[in-house]
């Protein structure tokens, strides 16, 4: 169980990245959704002990992380959003190096690395240079290095960005295999990842936690309040003035708006809510632009 209390962080430039974040994250996969600039990466880096918050506390299984970061570090798996490897270095060598730095006993390194290379399907390329890996292979290497040392907390920051659908599915499968006992924290802006993987999730925006809970429960809260309706592009602005439009999409040559309302707007029909609707509704409620204003202005 990872407990985060009142975490705040303001950067010297005056940007408030974290604004009183409270989270209780049980074992298992936990999804963190949010637009760019929501403070996700700051939260991840803080939890990975790469930077300190201005105030607040973090406890993992009751132990104070900020007071004694090295204890967490030895049981932490961190897959940063952007990472690389030393040039002309194979995954085998790189994993061995990280294992030693994590403090794995020397005699345990070799079997552990063999195991991880097999599990991440990198065994056949274990002697190739990581520079030459494709995006998917690189991410799998990333997860392999994060799994060294039987981590209690695994943090994966935007792991599926830029992967093709097959690699993304493969990565999701890999991740879910390892998330039974540990806390796995996954940030993404791909809603589908969270819907597929995470029993619990939170939505962040402007440095705050805007919504938290199980995806199904959050989705069901919109039951009976979500409507879809065909509109002409020029009527969109007028509709937006009276209704809370979550999103618009092109469907069969016409524009379809999804509207959140307690009473059915005239001319609309009921729609089944998805996690994406939850995400957009939460951001709308917090006054965060989801790109709709541009669509209406266009």
């Amino acid at each position: 169980m990872l407990t985060v209390r009142n975490l705040t962080k303001t950067y010297p430039g005056g940007v408030t990245a974290l604004d009183g974040v409270n989270l209780d994250i049980p074992a298992g996969m936990y999804g963190l959704l949010g637009p760019n600039g929501a403070g996700k990466s700051t939260l991840m880096r803080t939890l990975a002990t790469l930077q300190e918050p201005d105030s607040g506390t973090i406890h993992l299984d009751g132990a104070d992380v900020l007071a004694d970061p090295d204890t967490l570090r030895s049981r932490l798996g961190y897959l940063p959003q952007e990472f690389g490897a030393y040039p002309r270095t194979s995954p085998e060598v790189m994993l061995a190096h990280i294992a030693v730095l994590k403090g794995i006993a020397t005699e345990k390194c070799k079997p552990l690395i063999e195991f991880l290379l097999h599990r991440t399907n990198l065994w056949n390329v274990r002697k190739q240079s990581i520079d030459k890996f494709s995006g998917g292979m690189r991410q799998r290497f990333g997860i392999a290095q994060a799994l060294i040392g039987d981590p209690r907390l695994i943090i994966v920051d935007e792991p599926t960005a830029g992967l093709d659908p097959v690699e993304r599915r493969r990565f999701q499968n890999l991740l879910s295999q390892f998330s039974e006992e540990q806390v796995v924290l996954l940030t993404t802006h791909i809603v589908e990842d969270v819907a597929n993987l995470c029993p619990r999730m939170a939505i962040m925006g402007k440095g705050k936690v805007l919504a938290e809970g199980e995806p199904d429960v959050l989705t069901r809260a919109l039951d009976g309040r979500l409507w879809r309706m065909k509109v002409q592009r020029e009527d969109l602005a007028a509709l937006g003035a009276n209704h809370n439009i979550l999103s618009t999409r092109n469907r069969a040559g016409a524009l379809e708006a999804r509207i959140l309302a307690d009473a059915q707007p005239t001319g609309s029909e009921s729609a089944a809510p998805t996690l994406e609707d939850v995400y957009l509704a939460t951001l709308n409620a917090a006054g965060i632009d989801t790109g709709l204003n541009d669509a209406m202005a266009a």
Partner: peptide, 22 residues
Amino acid sequence: RERTVADAPKVTVRPDTAFAPS
């Protein structure tokens, strides 16, 4: 240069982890 390596018997049991930081 593409050294693909012959498949070794697959390790399926996760080896236990022992910490001995040095």
